[in-house]
Amino acid sequence: MAKLDYDYIIIGAGASGLLLADALGKDSFFAQKSILLLDRDAKKSNDRTWCFWEKGDGAFDDILYKKWKQIIFKGQDFSKSYDIAPYSYKMVRGIDFYAHYFKKLEGYPNIRFQQESVVEVKESESSVMVHTQETQYTCHQVFDSRFHYEMLEADRKYPLLQQHFVGWVIKTPKPVFHVEKATYMDFSVPQKGNTRFMYVLPFKEDEALVEYTLFSKEVLPKPDYEAALRDYIRTDLQCDTFEILEQEQGSIPMTCHDFTQRNSGRITRIGTAGGWAKPSTGYTFMGSSKKIPLLVSNLKSDNTIHALGQKKRFWFYDLLLLDVLYNNNAIGHEIFTSLFKKRKPELIFKFLDEETSFGEELQFISGCPNIPFIKAIFKRLF
């Protein structure tokens, strides 16, 4: 008979769920703990890509699909290529990540994966009950990565934008792409009152991921993304015919909402649901990889595992950008163009990694258009 009671249940086998399962599995402290990982999907398809910048070698280098040492930025009237050393821009495909970490989980006898859809989680004083469509489980602690925008509907304190996108991996009949250069942001596309850009990651001269991305309040009908992609491929890439090999679509919350308030004594939110996506960029992958060791350390020492999102000065910087874009969504291309014109990508990446000194932060901030941010500061302070 299948085991129904566990020490820990992890809901969701995405990046945060698999990274947490692996961290618990390889730590001898948890060798006697029983762990269940639940997901409604078998994770056998390439349903997403994760990208991040990093100095030198990193923990995910063995499963990288591609990395670039140069990036291209394009504004409405500005275009430049950059050597981003000491950083590289790296990409991991979902299918490679899943295969790698599920293989690792096979080596941990105390961890079990079950493909089931969770329908309800109920907490009591002594345990948590997790109902799936097939089974009822109990455990001492749940780590829940499920995110729904309904979580944010009641929060009127902070602005909410979405980073939403549709991407195609395309193959062209002729060489089109510069393999060594990733187009980080291309704002030359029509903005239509929003912050809209194209994102191009070339794998070969005739194959690349082309993604249409917006930072805005509302998502678009899918045909709108597809029309923009077709127009860009035909007009900017000058390629009338192409084959779509893979597709991806998503929406990531851009908000300074305090997700930790949704944690309780026995339920901890992780990943996007835990507020691990950086509010100003939507990047979550590396944020999750940095949060997991803190979560595990706190779990081992019986310290609170619910306070991983303390507000810092970078939280305030993120809030100011969201305030500006929320109140004037069309200004996004001006902000990013100003930054890439005046500042080096190394400083931009360092700032977004929250590793800058206060002096470097002043340098970064002064590279942005001043008036919108001064207004946002005064509005927040007074």
Rank of each mutant, 00 (worst) to 15 (best):
K3H: 07
D5G: 05
I10V: 01
I11G: 02
G12A: 02
S16N: 11
G17C: 08
G17W: 07
L18P: 00
L20Q: 02
F29V: 12
W53D: 10
E54N: 09
E54P: 00
E54I: 07
I63F: 05
I63P: 04
L64H: 01
K66T: 11
I72H: 11
I72Y: 10
G75S: 11
S79P: 10
D83Q: 12
A85C: 07
E106H: 10
P109F: 13
E116R: 02
E125A: 15
S127H: 13
E153P: 01
D155V: 12
Q163V: 02
D186Y: 01
S188P: 07
K192G: 03
G193A: 04
R196T: 11
V200R: 10
P202A: 05
Y212E: 07
T213E: 12
V219K: 05
D224P: 01
D224G: 00
L229H: 06
R234F: 00
F242S: 04
E243D: 13
E246F: 06
Q247I: 08
R262Q: 09
R266D: 05
I267R: 01
T272P: 11
P279T: 12
N303Q: 14
H306I: 14
Q310H: 14
W315R: 15
F316Q: 08
Y317W: 07
L320M: 10
L321Q: 04
L325S: 05
Y326Q: 10
N329E: 12
E334D: 09
K344F: 09
K344P: 00
E360L: 09
Q363F: 00
G367D: 10
I371N: 12
I371C: 06
I377P: 11
